[in-house]
């Protein structure tokens, strides 16, 4: 509210948000959270605690029943349909259930967010190749994504989330199906993005990826922060 905060304004601001799924499943209860621009935040908590729900609220996939959500300085509750689409172009999300298209190739899946923004074909080719390289997926780039293993599909989902170098990257359980080696690749990718300015929120119960780092960690329990 005050003038002084505008300079260092939080990139994500969640204020007293409650989310109830019908009929009466309370997924989040009066949650407040703010994430600064350029921060990496780990969101933990037991299964069913509401981590995915919180991420879905940030990208307007779900609507809160109460409270205010601001992303990139914009009140998500007041966005028009086309403004939501514009906001989504700035957010990269690796969904817990991947949401990749099984019949499209790995390349096509990863390229989609760039195509949506009408990026030139050459730029897309270069960027997608670079990403697939860094996740050791180049050799699979022309395979239908449905033919891949879970771990490989997860990397496709992560690559797609990262491809536009989004201002905000949301990763929902990004290392759930990955071994130690690949987890390290993915974390390096995130750190790279963060270095170039992305704000990153990672929902996880993999303690190994945040233990020993200096990044902030918040824990949800039954829809509440403790």
């Amino acid at each position: 509210m005050t003038e002084s905060t505008t300079e260092n304004r939080a990139f994500v601001d969640v204020v007293k948000v409650t989310k109830v799924y019908s009929p009466d499943i309370v997924a989040l209860q009066n949650i407040s959270l703010s994430v600064d621009r350029g921060e990496i935040l780990f969101l933990t908590g037991m299964s069913g605690a509401g981590k995915s729900t919180l991420l879905k609220l940030l990208c307007c996939m779900e609507r809160p029943n109460k409270g205010l959500i601001e992303v990139a300085g914009r009140d998500t509750g007041k966005l028009k349909k086309n403004e939501i689409q514009e906001l989504r172009q700035q957010i990269g999300i690796a969904y817990q259930d991947f949401k990749i298209l099984p019949r499209h190739t790995v390349f096509q899946n990863v390229a989609m967010p760039m195509e949506v923004m009408y990026k030139p074909a050459r730029e897309i080719r270069d960027r997608v190749s670079e990403l697939l390289d860094s996740l050791q997926m180049s050799h699979k780039k022309d395979l239908p994504a449905g033919k891949l293993s879970r771990g490989e599909q997860q990397r496709v989902a992560i690559a797609r989330a990262a491809v536009n170098r989004p201002a905000l990257l949301l990763a929902d359980e990004p290392t759930g199906n990955l071994d130690h080696e690949v987890t390290k690749m993915v974390m390096n990718l995130f750190l790279d993005l963060n270095n170039s300015g992305s704000t990153i929120i990672i929902a996880t119960h993999d303690t190994s990826i945040y233990e020993g780092t200096s990044h902030r960690m918040v824990k949800l329990e039954h829809g509440l922060f403790n």
């Binding site: 990208c59 996939m61 349909k81 086309n82 689409q85 514009e86 906001l87 989504r88 172009q89 700035q90 957010i91 999300i93 949401k99 990749i100 298209l101 499209h104 989609m112 967010p113 949506v116 923004m117 009408y118 797609r160």
Partner: peptide, 16 residues
């Protein structure tokens, strides 16, 4: 349907 839904989540405009 699935593809359109995902396009929507990726921020595709209605023109696209």
């Amino acid at each position: 349907e699935a593809e359109l839904e995902i396009l929507r989540l990726l921020g595709a405009s209605s023109t696209y």
